[in-house]
Design a protein around this nucleic acid. Structure first.
Lengths: 210, 210
DNA sequence: GCCGTTTTCAAATGACCATTTGAAATATTT
DNA sequence: AAATATTTCAAATGGTCATTTGAAAACGGC
């Protein structure tokens, strides 16, 4: 059945792309994992790059459903929004369900210029950054230059991004395995990260006092 | 002259590897840039991977000389050490001399598993992380679990790492060009980043109060 | 159960690239 | 300057992959 093979290809490709990135993943191994013929990817998707964007769509939908973004911050205020945003990112990174493949895929993409990089960046990544920037601006609450705001947003976002990078890097490393993954109660760790990120913002806010 | 060609290859390869990473760089283009024959890399270095490690050695030496690490922190104290460490990393990232290629190369390597990854990581990256971890531990100054300390170190290091990633990504992007690069006076920006990173540490320290 | 369409398949194609080869050129030694 | 070692060179080799091809198989409407 056609639709079935197409779905199987996406589901088989997702963990492989997330594990090895775009270039290191071969069409052959995806097809093998999906139990499909070597020509299946080109038949169903045209080429490897299109399958890759389908995998993004697939994983992003799953992750967004399991770890939704907080609503806009007009009600809860920017600080609480930032806290919830960060928490949902961290929970997604450290979860071991399918949704966890999404941060993994992002991590791989961030440092590889795949054929679809710009499209993916604009569709899936930039909007989040822009929303966070808005919240950071409102949190600071006074005049701050564009460059300074971009820098601060980058710092804030960098907290979970670099955690993601470190986690992906060491997750399967026997020496580091114990670190976060097998830590039963991840809640206090997440709180510590929140304290760090919000603490950084707080000090910068303080330093901007007139 | 032999030694001459060898040097030329390293110097020509450095900016190319730093720009495109290991895999995307072809031996052919390195040789062309160096004005050498296609066989020169294999003749002088054995293979592409060995040339790559030579480039690491070359750029690391240059960067370390221009932006040295602070001395051990028994005299200046851990907070000042962390501040100086961060500052020297940031200055290196934002400089536009040859030394700036080193963070660029690191950035590329971090997310690509080159044949020499483990060796390079252990030689050039891990020692810095371990030194920073020591300083963070002394800064906190009281009992903190291994996992918590690793996490906090990762957060602190992540500040400049993710800044490096963002900077490398957008440096040549016409829309973002203005952000940091053409900013004449980078000092205040660096101070803001320091405030963020040290502020994060400070809050975590505070939250650990008995 | 026949016919047009869709999907699968194994084998071929062609592009890209690191590395090898062996001869020619250049440098070094005596 | 002859003999030897080193370095350069253009062309060939071989491996890896994405993609194509055209025939076979499965499917769906009638």
């Amino acid at each position: 059945m056609s639709a079935d093979t197409k779905e199987r290809l996406i589901q088989a490709a997702a963990p492989i792309f997330a594990d090895k990135g775009y270039r290191e993943t071969t069409v052959a191994e995806i097809c093998e994992a999906a139990g499909a013929n070597i020509a299946a990817v080109n038949y169903h998707f045209g080429d490897k790059a299109n399958l890759y964007t389908e995998v993004w769509k697939y994983l992003n939908t799953i992750a967004l459903k399991a770890y939704p973004f907080p609503d806009d911050h007009f009600e809860i205020g920017p600080e609480e929004w930032l806290r919830r945003f960060l928490r949902s990112r961290l929970e997604c990174i450290f979860c071991d369900t399918l949704a966890g493949l999404c941060p993994k895929l992002i991590h791989k993409e961030m440092n590889e210029r795949t054929p679809k990089h710009n499209e993916l960046f604009l569709t899936y990544l930039k909007p989040n950054r822009d929303r966070a920037r808005l919240a950071v601006r409102d949190y600071i609450g006074r005049d701050i230059g564009d460059v300074q705001l971009d820098l601060l947003t980058q710092n804030f976002m960098g907290v979970h991004i670099s955690l993601n990078a470190g986690y992906q890097k060491h997750k399967n490393d026997p020496e580091h395995m114990h670190k976060f993954a097998q830590y039963q109660n991840i809640g206090p760790l997440i709180e510590q990260v929140e304290t760090f990120a919000l603490g950084g913002l707080k000090e910068v806010k303080k330093s901007l006092n007139p």
